[in-house]
């Protein structure tokens, strides 16, 4: 079931949306081309952060520092069933979106996109938000000084997201 959904989702989307467009008399080809030209600018925006983070994590990995961190946290990561390779990603995710993307990318590249660790890293990146950034931007915009219980609730949600991600990955992958 899971396999079918994940194999079909992209072709279905690419079929259904233009199909619905044709019925509604929308210029689907021109619309597509118009949207697609923004693809490059999105990547250009991501690119510098990707270089910064790939280099930083590359240094940590090549020097052996990442192995040390993993060994140090092993008792804890073993307990929750999380591969120690994902520790840096889990730590950065609530702090920086582009940073987390860079680290997830490096993990996927090192361990393979179809490995358990690679898939888990992808899901982990996709399943939590940059909590501190969201709080800072939204409260900052309206001049709220006391954030009350939202900080704890947000961080709690991040922790649950990471734990669930480990749990569901082991279940489905």
């Amino acid at each position: 079931m899971m396999k079918i959904i994940s194999e079909w989702i992209i072709p279905i989307l690419v079929l259904v949306i233009p199909f619905y467009g044709i019925i509604k008399n929308v210029k689907v080809y021109e619309g597509f081309v118009d949207g697609a030209k923004e693809g490059i600018s999105v990547v250009i925006k991501i690119f510098p952060a990707l270089v910064a983070m790939l280099v930083a994590i590359g240094v940590l990995r090549a020097s052996g520092a990442l192995d040390l961190l993993g060994k140090f946290l092993m008792p804890f990561t073993n307990k929750i069933g999380m591969p120690q390779e994902l520790v840096p990603l889990a730590l950065i995710r609530p702090l920086s979106g582009s940073g987390a993307l860079g680290i997830a990318t490096e993990i996927i590249k090192t361990h393979g996109a179809d490995s358990l660790i690679g898939k888990m890293a992808s899901a982990m990146y996709g399943s939590t938000e940059t909590t501190f950034y969201v709080l800072a931007v939204y409260y900052g915009a309206v001049g709220i000084k006391k954030m009350r219980h939202s900080v704890i609730s947000g961080i709690f949600a991040d922790i649950i997201a990471i734990l669930s991600c480990v749990f569901y990955s082991r279940l489905f992958f």
Partner: peptide, 14 residues
């Protein structure tokens, strides 16, 4: 990204 943003542009018009 170009593929997805293209599809999303159609979805947006809909």
């Amino acid at each position: 990204m170009s593929l997805w943003l293209g599809i999303m542009k159609i979805a947006d018009k809909l």
